[in-house]
Simulated scan of single mutants.
Amino acid sequence: MRRAASALAGVIRERLTDAASPRVLVIAGSGDNGGDALFAASELGAGVAVDVLAVGSRVHQDGLAAALGAGARQVSVDAAAAAASGYTVVVDGILGIGTSPDPALRGAARDAVARLLDTMGDGMPRRTVAVDLPSGLQPDTGVADDVVLPAAMTMTFGAVKAGLVIGRGPDLCGELVLVDLGLGPGLADEEPAGEASVTRILEA
C-alpha cells in the first residue's frame, strides 16, 4: 500500500506545480483505496494544505493517522462543499474493485459526491484524480451510476480494469496511468476486454 501511495503522491504533486497555494481534498472510503489516498496525502509535503473527508462506515486508521500527522485536517461534507472552489486537486479514494455488481454510491459517499458535483459543476472532473477507478464505475462491466466522479486522471494499480476500457469507463477515467506492481506474467494468458489508452506506466 505504501508503494502505491508513493506513486499516487508523485502524480498529485505534478498537478499542484502551478498552484500558488495548493489545496487538496482527499475523499476517503472504507477500503484500501481510501488508505492509498490517505497515505499519499501524508507524503505531499510542506506547503500543501490537505483536507480529508471520510465518507465510509469506517476509515483506514493508519492512513488517517499518517495524513493528520503530516498536517492534514479532517473536515465535514459541509466544510468541503463550502471550500470546493478552492481545491486544486480532489482525490477520489471512495470505492475500488471490491464494489458490488451495482456500482452505485450510497449513504454519506453519495451525499458528498452529489454535493461537490453540484457546487463545483464542470470544475470537479478537471481537478479529480481517481484511485484505481472513478467511484461509481463498475470495475468489470463499465456500468456507471448517475452520481459518479468523472476524473481528469485515473491511477490504476497492477492492471487496467476491464471497466476502464468498456462501457462508460473511457468517458469517466480521463488520462489513464498504470502503476506496475509486477502482475504482468500472471495476466499473460488473460483475454483483454478492450484497448487501453495508458498514457504512462510507473514503477511502484
Rank of each mutant, 00 (worst) to 15 (best):
R168E: 04
D171V: 01
S85L: 13
M155F: 03
V89M: 05
V91S: 13
L137F: 04
V147Y: 10
S135G: 01
V148P: 01
E191N: 06
G174F: 10
D140N: 14
A152Q: 12
T99Q: 13
L181T: 11
P170I: 13
D189Q: 14
L176T: 10
T141C: 10
D140S: 15
E195S: 12
T156N: 11
D102L: 12
I166K: 06
D145F: 10
A162W: 00
E175D: 15
D118L: 10
R168A: 03
P192L: 13
R168N: 01
L117A: 14
P185N: 13
V147C: 14
L133F: 01
M155C: 12
V113W: 00
Q138P: 04
S100A: 14
V177S: 11
D145G: 13
V148A: 08
M153T: 15
L181S: 06
G174R: 10
A144K: 00
D118C: 03
G174L: 10
R106L: 06
L95R: 12
A193D: 02
D146K: 06
G123C: 07
P185H: 14
P170Q: 14
M124N: 00
G107F: 03
L183V: 07
A130F: 03
P134D: 08
P125C: 07
P139E: 09
G96D: 02
Y87G: 01
V147Q: 05
E191T: 15
V129K: 00
D171S: 14
V165Y: 02
S85C: 07
G107D: 06
D140T: 14
E191S: 13
G167P: 04
G142M: 04
V147H: 09
V160W: 06
A144S: 11
E175W: 05
S85I: 07
C173Q: 12
P192R: 15
A193G: 11
E191A: 15
R127L: 11
T119C: 12
L172R: 06
D146E: 15
R126I: 03
A152I: 10
P101R: 14
L181Y: 00
V90N: 01
V131D: 06
A193L: 05
C173A: 14
I94K: 00
D180R: 03
